[in-house]
Design a protein around this nucleic acid. Structure first.
Lengths: 154, 154
DNA sequence: GTAAATGCAAATGATTTGCGGCTGG
DNA sequence: CCAGCCGCAAATCATTTGCATTTAC
């Protein structure tokens, strides 16, 4: 409990500081949305966030979720992922990592690959422009989708 | 001219074969849309394709473009790209390659990186599922956007 | 107190779909 | 001929925006 409390205060403090730096206010909605993103590793969409927060915040509206993820993204607190379908997903994990995308369920898992990160980028890239970042995207079928199709309850 | 003619017949033949294999017809619209995708390296969106084909096919409708790229994608003739904004882009270049995405203009360039393609993937991936493909996405600023902002005409 | 944020509802933009007429095989 | 395809228009889905009310600072 003490540890969670510590982390929680860290998040709150960090959010407040970053937001204040941009002249932005720390609201209940922003805190809740950011906490939900921090706690999830499922790269939720706005709709996902809305649905998961609704029980505890009945007055929350979906457009606030959209506005807030935009705000948090511009503030550099979260990152927008590239999308395979037409839905934007977000990630509060800012540490450098790669992605494994399941082509069947479209779920995204974070992958750490240190060996790659020290691999030199091709010099031919220079002619295209200045590289700021570099991320590997693996595609395939995740273990859940791979499992033989049983009755969901079995 | 003879060479273009050859390629052209190759495309036509290949399209016809692939479509026929799926019980699909080779129509003027499908041919034109596929040709436009083959000829472009700019990874056009449906709207881009529609605009570029309209002069030569005034009766073409945008929904046919949407249906056709879906058809071509399922037939395995073209590939859908991941998107940074909310717009889907397509690519007829099926050869394995990577991408350099300009964060300013959102343009996508194809990158060949043989050295990477033989690099072993991390073994920890196995626990997530079966990897089917693997692509590197570089992000940065392209040379065009990097150039000092001059008058566009200068 | 006051500017900024929220909730509501209507607008927008991309993409999809139902349907009657058209057309490739 | 006839199933599949096209163009049209209306529908849908994700996301954005204008505006009056509420709230953090």
């Amino acid at each position: 409990m003490a540890i969670d409390q510590c982390q929680e205060e860290g998040i709150l403090e960090r959010l407040r500081t970053v937001l204040a730096g941009g002249g932005l206010r720390l609201t209940q909605q922003r805190l809740s949305i950011y906490r939900a993103l921090e706690a999830s590793s499922a790269h939720p969409s706005c709709e996902d966030l809305f649905q998961s927060l609704r029980p505890s915040m009945p007055s929350l509206s979906i457009d606030t979720v959209y506005r807030t993820v935009g705000t948090l993204e511009q503030a550099g607190m979260i990152r927008k992922l590239v999308s395979l379908d037409g839905v934007q997903r977000y990630d509060a994990n800012l540490a450098h990592h790669h992605h494994f995308v399941c082509e069947r369920c479209l779920g995204v898992s974070d992958i750490v690959w240190d060996a790659f990160d020290t691999f030199p980028v091709p010099e031919s890239l220079a002619k295209w422009g200045t590289v700021r970042s570099c991320q590997v995207e693996f595609r395939g079928v995740c273990v859940k989708c791979e499992a033989p199709d049983r009755m969901s309850g079995a």
